[in-house]
């Protein structure tokens, strides 16, 4: 129990900030979303005590599904210790008093901004995405009335127009994040601005995926073990990014890497975007090519005293 959790105990907030009626409303939207995988369910998004763009959609979804026994993990671009993750974790510690963690395996609810953990998720976990723009057709067809009809009629030729343009202009499909997918052979969906590297993880995932867009007032979902296919052409099949070197710290291959600038002289290294995954590997004794580099020492990440309580 920490000092912020005490605020919850003093009764200043309802559990997880939102009132119970609002949570019910959101849960109904979530259930509908689960029943129609990939379909954007409108919901009465509330004003939250944080700006749009900070994950108000994800926060409302998390608040609505959180129970007292849940253990919450917050990810921002793969790491637990950047601004957005720290703030939102603090928010739920303060308003719900639930246990939080950095460890993917320990969490029962994981709210994420723009990444999916490298470690496989389980059936007893829920992954909540923060979504800025839920409509994959938006930039091709600005009229909401029209995009809704297009979804209703499965009129998705436009999505391929976008991919065609990519190939025509770049020689390959240059979309690297928010890469559109077709869910359960029916709805085309924006998987939020996750790198397309994570798209294969969405397919047949054991965990329930919930997507919340606060400003746009939409919730959508992918139930466990649902078919999710990334759009592509027969002669230009979907491919994920490949990195030509392993993580500098833990030596992991086939994971999503972030570039880290080490100094003003052009020094840089590539490390796991998923900081928890990287740490766990290092704890197990895996070492990357730059693990011993003094310049890299300070990005080893998390100091012991900062770990989640």
């Amino acid at each position: 129990m920490n000092d912020t959790a005490a605020i919850f105990d003093q009764g200043e907030y309802n559990f997880a900030y939102l009132d119970e009626q609002t949570k019910r409303m959101i849960r109904r939207a979530i259930l509908k979303g689960i029943a129609i995988p990939g379909y954007q369910v409108p919901f009465a998004s509330r004003e939250m005590p944080m700006p749009y763009g900070w994950g108000t959609g994800g926060v409302q979804v998390t608040a609505s599904i959180l129970g007292k026994d849940d253990c919450l993990k917050m990810i921002d671009q793969g790491s637990d210790d950047t601004t957005n993750a720290v703030s939102l974790r603090g928010f739920f510690e303060k308003t719900a008093g639930v246990r939080t963690t950095y460890e993917t395996a320990e969490a029962s609810v994981i709210q994420t901004r723009h990444r999916i953990p490298e470690k496989n998720l389980r059936e007893d976990q829920i992954l909540v995405f923060q979504v800025p723009i839920p409509e994959p057709l938006r930039f091709l067809e600005p009229r909401e009335t029209e995009t809704r009809k297009m979804h209703a009629l499965e009129d998705y030729g436009l999505m391929h127009v976008k991919l065609y343009e990519d190939i025509a202009k770049n020689g390959h499909i240059a979309t690297t994040y928010a890469y559109p997918v077709k869910v359960n052979d029916r709805y085309v969906m924006d998987p939020s601005p996750t790198p397309k590297f994570d798209n294969p993880k969405i397919d047949q995932m054991a965990a329930l995926q919930l997507y919340g867009a606060g400003r746009e007032k939409r919730i959508y979902a992918i139930p466990p073990y649902t078919k999710v296919k990334s759009l592509d052409f027969e002669d230009y099949p979907f491919e994920i990014q490949k990195f030509d070197k392993p993580c500098g710290l833990c030596g992991a291959e086939d994971v999503y890497l972030d570039e880290v600038i080490l100094d003003d002289k052009g020094g840089r290294m590539f490390v796991c975007s998923d900081s928890d995954f990287c740490e766990e590997r290092r704890a197990e004794g895996h070492l990357g090519p730059m693990a011993a580099d003094p310049a890299a020492a300070h990005i080893g990440g998390i100091q012991p005293e900062e770990t989640a309580r």
Binding site: Y156, G157, H160, Y164, I167, D232, F233, E234, D235, Y236
Partner: peptide
């Protein structure tokens, strides 16, 4: 593409 052609070439 709208009628289902999925071969870029």
């Amino acid at each position: 593409m709208a009628v289902g052609d999925r071969h870029y070439g």
